[in-house]
Nucleic acid binder design. Sequence first.
DNA 1: ACCGAAAACTGAGAATAACTCGCATCATTG
DNA 2: CAATGATGCGAGTTATTCTCAGTTTTCGGT
Lengths: 224, 224
Amino acid sequence: MLTPRKQPRQQRSRETVAAILEAAAQLFQRHGYTGTTTNKIAERAGVSIGSLYQYFPNKDALLVALAEHYLAESVQQVAQVFARAGEHRPPLPVLLADLVECVAVLHTDRPRLHRLLFDQAPRTPDLVTRFRQAEQQIAQALARELRRLGTGGPDPELNALLAVQGIEAHLHGALLDLPAGRDATAHVRAVVRLWQQALSAPCDPAEAHRSLGQASSGPNRRSR
Amino acid sequence: MLTPRKQPRQQRSRETVAAILEAAAQLFQRHGYTGTTTNKIAERAGVSIGSLYQYFPNKDALLVALAEHYLAESVQQVAQVFARAGEHRPPLPVLLADLVECVAVLHTDRPRLHRLLFDQAPRTPDLVTRFRQAEQQIAQALARELRRLGTGGPDPELNALLAVQGIEAHLHGALLDLPAGRDATAHVRAVVRLWQQALSAPCDPAEAHRSLGQASSGPNRRSR
DNA sequence: ACCGAAAACTGAGAATAACTCGCATCATTG
DNA sequence: CAATGATGCGAGTTATTCTCAGTTTTCGGT
């Protein structure tokens, strides 16, 4: 990621940058991305518009910086779940329940921030890259646990990545865009149940023979 | 969805609207959403900027209209898969392979359009609603098939919705943001395998007893 | 064929918001 | 206590969305 702008060196400027980010977070969450102007952000931060552009090359960069913080924090939260798992060695259902619980808290804790970063903001390539990177970090930790448990299907690394992507999508749907007439907790429980089922296949490649091909609609192909 | 703009009544204006949408689709795909100005769209469409704003209240509305078309088309494609399934009664693995194949084509056919809509569209609440609606339509069709097959776990409707959300997320990741060093077709095959596993639990609630252990080992835990 | 009304089209320019730049002020260092 | 570099400033430039008053085209009725 390029940083074509000055890095704050003195204490004073570090405070300026912090104030700008704080103001940006508040205004973005309150009025949305397009509903917030860089001038308003500078005003609220108590600095001039020129100072803002001294540290952020454009409006998007504010968003990327916020995402950077949020994602780093999120990855750390999830890492704690795996750290505990490393000690207690829980069975798969417990591990998944803890993981989902943790990710659910990340959604419900600051829903407007989460929504801002995932929905309201234009997804710049920088942001997409950063999201994928966080996904991969988490997926690696999960894959390690799956291997330890001897589960996760023929390719635990790949399935771990799919699980992380899926769980995010599912909780986002369940907690931020809940379909009418659905109960959120039941929905979340279903997510846990489903991923437990999905990841319960043994790790042993013996099961990975050549079970599935591309297949069109002929009565061919059989299940595991 | 509000339509605070004139509806085209004469043939001439219907052609104008079509030309504007065609130009918008091309320019958005070539230069991105923010990289395209409404004036350029009007110019390319061969109409004046005023005409554009006669039919679209703002730039976002162009995106919404494009998404509307694309989603309707996509839902129709997927519906065909289920229509075929209604005739041939394929087993779960074949049905899933066909479904994934179909969704994969929707991604690879016009990847730039797909990316445009998924990356930019979430900013508009209208579009989020529209996407969810499409998801639900597809999920309902899938749930019907799951019930027929006596599979899909304790709540086939809910699991079908999760499957549709997950498959979209997975294929998006596999085909538009493929992680370095991964093979796309292998990735797609893994998606099929995973969802086959996830949805293979019998529908009969007898199996839904209390198959999952709960109680965490750590001093966390909250839900359920 | 003609007329009046409604629909469609036009493009200069008002309004808004991102971003720049030359200069003033502050902090640090030798 | 210079001198040098870092930080801060904000009116002004630029780019882009969107409006509106006026013109042209279409169409139904006579």
